[in-house]
Amino acid sequence: MSDKIYGIIAEFDSPAAILCAAEKVRDAGYRRWDTFTPFPIHGMDKVMKLGNSLVGWVSLAMGAGAFASVAGLIWFCNAFDYPLIVGGKPMFSAPMTFVPSYIMLIMGSAVGALVGMLGLNQLPRLHHPLLDIKRFGLASRDKFFLVIGAQDEKFCAMETRKLLESIGGVNIAIVEDSD
């Protein structure tokens, strides 16, 4: 067991309590902290100032890339490498490439959305220090957790614990970094 500290965890009972606690932790000036909840909490993005997720941009980039590549592929196949006359139509025209390109845009964007989500969330990961905490299993059930990371500039085992106690956290514990 290493003696490195990952952070301090506190447990809350309701969505309103965790939202209120998050506001107070933010106002206390902490920056490296996160909340862990069984479902997304309405308004938490704003409280944590998460801004707009980049997933949309990853998805757009992959989709646009797929669209352009397929249009290019069709030009290469049917107009450049082996020109093929079908029904007296032009070798290459934009409307004719639209449907397959558009379909592959959907495919590319969808893969982009999933890969972007996993990448930005740093998943898949084999281990997380919080998963060693027994009560943390309830984070997927009906409890709400707030963790202040030890890497935060303001982190101080005593002071941070006091803050968490004062905002109503229970079962406050130190999380050890087992990595």
Binding site: A22, D34, T35, F36, T37, P38, F39, P40, I41, M44, D45, M48, L50, N52, S53, L54, V55, G56, S59, Y102, I103, I106, S109, A110, A113, L114, G116, M117, L118, L120, N121, L123, P124, R125, L126, H127, H128, L130, L131, A139, S140
Partner: peptide
């Protein structure tokens, strides 16, 4: 895959979910 349910994870997840819903809706009609 190591899902912890952190607010940051949910934040990206919800975005990806809504994007995928939009794309799937296009597929219904395509």
């Amino acid at each position: 895959m190591g899902w912890t349910g952190s607010a940051r994870q949910w934040h990206n997840y919800e975005k990806a979910y809504v994007v995928l819903c939009g794309l799937c809706t296009l597929l219904v009609f395509t």
